[in-house]
Write a protein that binds this DNA or RNA. Structure first.
Lengths: 95, 95
DNA sequence: AAAATAGTTCAAAATATTTTGAACTATTTT
DNA sequence: AAAATAGTTCAAAATATTTTGAACTATTTT
C-alpha cells in the first residue's frame, strides 16, 4: 500500500480552481458551514447569477474542492477539504 | 506580536502563479537545487525561450515564490518556500 | 393545469493570460 | 573595438477564462 503520486494536471486543476475571487468566496462560505447547502443559497449569499454559479460550481467540483449532489430540483454542495490537503500538502514532495 | 492576516489578493496571486505548467516546471527545477542559478540555466533545462522565461520568472517573483537577484548580465533565481508555506498553510484558517 | 422555482445549456462578448519575434540595454569575451 | 552573451521591453497574435442573457429541463407549488 504505497501512496499514489499526484499528477501535475490535477495539481494545476486545483490551483486554477483556487485562483479566482468568486470561487474563493464560495469556498469561504462553505467553509463556515458544517453541512451541505443548495447552490442557490450560496449564490444569493455572495451575489452572483445562477449562470455564473453553475459555471463556478462545476469548476470547483471538477477540481474536487466541493462535493455536489443533485436532489430533485436542487443541487447541494459542501466543501471537500481532502483534495486541498492532499494535493497542496504534498506539493513540495512530488513537485 | 500577532500574526498578520493574509490578503485574498495575495492568495490569488500565489495560486495563479502556481496554476501553470511552465511555472511548475521552473519551481520543480529550482526545488531540486540548494543554491541559486541563472535564469538562462533554468530556461535551457526546461526548454523555453528567453522571452518566455522573463515573463514567467516575473510572475513567480511577484508572487513571492522565488527570489531574484540581478548581478551584472545575469539574473539569479532561487526558490522561496516561505511564501507557499505561509499563504497555503494558513488557507483554511483565514479563507 | 398553470405558475413558480432551481438549475443547466448554449453562444456571444468581454476579459485575462500566454506566446512570439524583433529591437533593445548592459555586460563580458575575443 | 567588435562580437557574443544574458536578459528586457514592446506590441501583436494566439489562447484561455469569465460573464451575460435567452431559451431550456425538471420539479414543486398554487
Amino acid at each position: 500500500m504505497t501512496k499514489q503520486p499526484i499528477k501535475t494536471e490535477q495539481t494545476i486543476q486545483v490551483f486554477k480552481a483556487l485562483a479566482d475571487p468568486v470561487r474563493l468566496e464560495i469556498l469561504q462560505y462553505l467553509n463556515g458551514l458544517d453541512h451541505e447547502v443548495a447552490c442557490g443559497e450560496v449564490g444569493a449569499a455572495i451575489g452572483i447569477s445562477k449562470t455564473s454559479g453553475t459555471y463556478h460550481f462545476k469548476i470547483l467540483q471538477a477540481a474536487g474542492l466541493i462535493t455536489a449532489r443533485k436532489e430533485a430540483r436542487e443541487k447541494y454542495v459542501a466543501i471537500d477539504r481532502g483534495t486541498f490537503d492532499t494535493v497542496v500538502g504534498h506539493f513540495w514532495d512530488q513537485l
